[in-house]
């Protein structure tokens, strides 16, 4: 379950590595947008301690679909986006879910190798 204070991994090459959620609604699922602060960085554009928006890509909580199938992931991961919801990095690692299509975040889907 993602709430305020949750640490998430970043699965793109925007520069952030680990972020902390500081603003979100209740019951965050795949495809929701949260505000985060950057705690750890890697090579890229973003610096640590900056506040960013991010899209949740995978969750450890079960993802249930209408056809009855259930999906579980290893970690909570997100992708950094700017205020217009366009992706900051230019590559997305690991798996993403087709639920992002519902939120019109097709750019993220097109960059990933495996959609589930």
């Amino acid at each position: 379950m993602i709430c305020r204070g949750t640490y998430l991994n970043i699965s793109d090459n925007s520069g952030a590595k680990i972020v902390k959620c500081i603003g979100c609604n209740d019951g965050i699922n795949v495809g929701d947008i949260i505000t985060v602060t950057i705690k750890k960085t890697q090579k890229g554009k973003l610096n640590s301690k900056s506040v960013q928006k991010a899209v949740v890509v995978t969750t450890t909580k079960k993802l249930k679909r209408k056809d009855g199938s259930q999906y579980r992931f290893d970690t909570n991961t997100c992708v950094c986006v700017d205020s217009k919801l366009s992706i900051i990095g230019n590559r997305v690692m690991g798996a993403t879910t087709y639920e992002l299509r519902m939120y019109k975040l097709i750019k993220i889907l097109s960059l990933t190798k495996i959609c589930i």
């Binding site: 009855g68 199938s69 259930q70 999906y71 992931f73 690991g94």
Partner: peptide
């Protein structure tokens, strides 16, 4: 409608 799928970090 049965079971669960688990996706590892390396997809």
């Amino acid at each position: 409608g049965h079971g669960i799928t688990f996706v590892r970090n390396d997809a």
